[in-house]
Design a protein around this nucleic acid. Structure first.
Lengths: 294, 294
DNA sequence: ATCCACGATAGGCGTAGCCTATGGAGATCA
DNA sequence: TGATCTCCATAGGCTACGCCTATCGTGGAT
């Protein structure tokens, strides 16, 4: 049984005419006749009663017709569905990102992407780089924005550097924070507000303090980015955050750059190396990389 | 898109393994790979993520899978249905027969047929030969038991002689009917009970009387075979009926053969010449012809 | 480092499906 | 009745596709 045989069969059943059916399906009449014969022979029953000038369905033909129609319709549906997925009219992308990027970079980029491909659902997984890497490997994410370098022992991921961001110190506008760049060492004995475990920023900041020779102390600890900023504005202490976040934090903050080499972190796009990401994920990756040059 | 491509696709989706899928569908692994590629290329999307040792469906593949399954299931159903029809496990025969045959020949033959093919519905149309011929031509009947010769101007029908039956005179057992064969001419001035219009027996009997030089008169006229026999038994008159019917009529009747050439009629099976009857009808025809030799 | 498992690639073969040309059998009309 | 027309079936040839075997390439395991 072949699709074109069913197609020809339906055409003959509907036109009650071999020649006209052949025209309708764009094959020569003998080819159509031959295929109908082949179908009949395979099924072991005549499908049409071939009376001169009055072609009609046999019982077997009548039984086959609705099934043939449904099979052809399903095949069309299949083509359409897959095409829509391929053409980004439908689908989804599962994107992982660190909390700071979720508030900083993503909103604008996702808006652009959504405007271009309104049919694609965007599923955002907010988490630390470490968790994101694991989820990528598991196939639970298509794409993730992570902080380089990858933790040691990571599965095979392909990464593309997206941007580097400087870390800055934010404090309450009414506070006593200096305006000139500060060194990490200057943070010794300063009240600090710190993110919950899981934020790469936490590990990075703590490591920097230790490198400068002191163990930081936290007046408040835990909470997401917004909470931390709130604590800072309330005067509970300072915090080290990406400059991008600090810039958007609004009034009530004093932003102080870090002196010397400062602190930077490299944000990269990552996906599994062994599997090409879905079409929609590749497109989102493109949009993300494109956003870099804006 | 081809059926075997969908079959291979489902096999790979279910085994998550090209080599094992190839074994399952009994083709070589390269052939299967090639067909999957062809399908992917036609649909314009990858269907599988080919990670080492972990073949998985892409979104497109996931969208296709249920449709592919349904298409294949429908194809199987189609094969099965048509085969059941062809193998006489299902279906119907529309058989036309004259009233006398319905009561005489048919019950036994239909019982035999039904025992052999319990899935076939038997639709019996009782009517005069003339009507039956018209219904055959219209395609409303597959097969009919008619009286030969065909009326002039009949459409193209193929007939097979089935049997010849003698006509006899039945009368009430208590009546004065002679026991020796009678001639048609002897029926002059005898009270006759006659079938309704439409019975071929009526035309035949009346024609025979006229040929013998008289116009028959009827004491009762109309009614089906059973009614006529009832009138005869009640002593209302005699009737000319097929010997087969007379034999089964039971007690209360005297059966008198007709002398000389007598009256015979030829019963034949008829079907349209331009269309082969359905499988089930051909089978019924076979059983009918077979019954002749019993 | 070597081997193994597994999917991809290459090349050859047979046939299935399509084409054009033609046959043959009912309808139709002069 | 015969000529023509219509329409499906048949014949023969060509191409392309699907299948095969043999081999390669590459990750993962020993």
């Amino acid at each position: 049984m072949q699709f074109q045989q069913l197609l020809y069969f339906v055409a003959v059943a509907e036109t009650r005419h071999f020649t006209r059916a052949a025209e309708r399906v764009h094959v020569s009449q003998p080819s159509l006749s031959q295929q109908i014969r082949a179908l009949e022979s395979e099924l072991g029953a005549e499908l049409f009663s071939r009376a001169r000038g009055n072609i009609g369905l046999t019982e077997a033909g009548a039984a086959l017709l609705p099934l043939a129609r449904r099979i052809l319709a399903d095949a069309d549906t299949a083509r359409l569905e897959v095409q829509e997925l391929a053409q980004l009219r439908r689908g989804r992308v599962r994107l992982g990102a660190t909390p700071s990027l979720c508030t900083g970079l993503l909103p604008e980029v996702l808006r652009v992407f959504h405007d271009r491909h309104p049919g694609i659902r965007l599923l955002i997984e907010e988490g630390g780089s470490h968790d994101l890497v694991r989820q990528l490997a598991r196939g639970a994410l298509d794409l993730a924005l992570i902080v380089l370098p990858l933790p040691p022992g990571s599965p095979a991921l392909t990464t593309v550097e997206l941007l580097q961001e400087d870390l800055v110190v934010v404090s309450a506008a009414a506070g006593k924070a200096p305006r000139r760049p500060v060194r990490i060492a200057d943070l010794r004995d300063q009240p600090l507000v710190m993110f919950r475990h899981g934020y790469d920023l936490r590990e990075l900041t703590v490591a920097a303090c230790r490198a400068a020779g002191f163990e930081p102390g936290f007046t408040v600890e835990g909470g997401e980015m917004d909470a931390v900023l709130g604590f800072v504005r309330a005067g509970l202490g300072m915090a080290v955050v990406p400059s991008m976040v600090a810039d958007r934090a609004g009034p009530g903050f004093r932003v102080t750059p870090l002196a010397g080499p400062g602190l930077r972190r490299t944000i990269a796009l990552a996906h599994r190396s062994d599997v090409a990401p879905p079409r929609a994920a590749r497109e989102l990756q493109r949009v993300l990389l494109e956003s870099r040059s804006l």
